[in-house]
């Protein structure tokens, strides 16, 4: 029993150490890749695959989250006579929490799985070794463009998700429950600060980077055979999902502390 716990702990620590080295190797090459024109042509296909191809999923997710949020809140707010404030509830939840987290989860499922499967297949068919033998660093050639694309596109996809959720919420409130559109929009605009949008998008940047790193790492280290690739894909999604939830909590606390610190100085400034 003790031996099993010890072995699992050692394995976990080893895996974390390997992931840290892999992440550092990737992150340290991002600035160079951003300025080196030769690497841009590696980025464009990733922008298309990760960004453009994810838009429909984000649109559907956003719309239905907005619809469900508004439908849930409608009766309770109506009972309290606060139905005109429905936009505050829907949009604040979307912008600060649900938008970034759900966009992150969808990205982990749609893009993360695909990245792991692609790189995992390349590993088991010796394509990663082929790159190394030709003097090309697979991390620079394969991982860096994918992680950059995830970092850049996660906030953009989150904005899509937020926007569509906002439209969904407005539809339920104004069209279905006949809440006047003008006060709905007025109170929403009053309640949501730029900081809320900023904190939500900051989270999505971090989620994007983590999804890219975890998915590529799992692909790079998958075991041989179809089963190995399948397991790596499952593991990439589950790990990304858990990491998103854990990071969300800590990011929330961090953003709150930052808000209090910055706004604490507001009267002085």
């Amino acid at each position: 029993m003790l031996a099993t716990v010890g072995a699992t702990t050692i394995r976990t620590l080893e895996s974390m150490g390997t992931f840290s080295r892999f992440s550092w190797k990737t992150v340290s090459q991002i600035p160079v890749a951003c300025v080196r024109g030769r690497d841009w042509r590696l980025l464009m296909p990733q922008f298309y695959l990760i960004g453009v191809r994810s838009v429909p999923v984000m649109v559907v997710t956003g719309v239905f989250v907005g619809l469900v949020l508004a439908a849930q809140a409608a009766d309770q707010l109506h009972a309290a006579g606060l139905e005109t404030r429905m936009g505050v509830l829907v949009n604040l939840s979307l912008v600060k929490e649900l938008g970034p987290v759900l966009a992150g989860v969808m990205l982990a499922g749609r893009v993360g799985g695909a990245l792991t499967a692609e790189l995992g297949t390349m590993r088991v068919t010796e394509q990663l070794d082929a790159l190394r033998v030709m003097g090309t660093d697979p991390v620079r050639h394969l991982v860096v463009p994918r992680v950059i694309a995830c970092i850049v596109l996660a906030p953009i996809l989150t904005m899509y998700c937020n926007m569509m959720g906002s439209i969904g919420g407005w539809f339920v409130a104004v069209i279905v429950h006949h809440i006047p559109s003008e006060p709905y929009q007025y109170y929403t605009a009053e309640a949501i600060e730029k900081w809320d949008i900023f904190s939500g998008l900051t989270k999505s940047v971090v989620f994007g980077g983590l999804i890219g790193l975890i998915s590529c790492f799992k692909g790079f280290n998958c075991r041989s055979g179809a089963e190995g690739v399948g397991r790596a894909c499952t593991s990439a999604f589950v790990t990304s999902f858990i990491v998103i939830l854990i990071t969300d909590f800590f990011m929330l606390r961090l953003m709150q502390d930052m808000y209090n610190t910055i706004w604490g100085f507001k009267p002085v400034l």
Binding site: T121, E126, Q127, D129, A130, R132, V133, M134, G135
Partner: peptide, 23 residues
């Protein structure tokens, strides 16, 4: 070093068992 190894590897050609062509 890794950089020197990458340069040196260009003096080798390697035919892989599964061909390892980029799909």
């Amino acid at each position: 070093s890794t950089a020197a190894l990458a340069k040196l590897r260009r003096r080798f050609g390697y035919l892989f068992q599964l061909s390892a062509l980029f799909d």
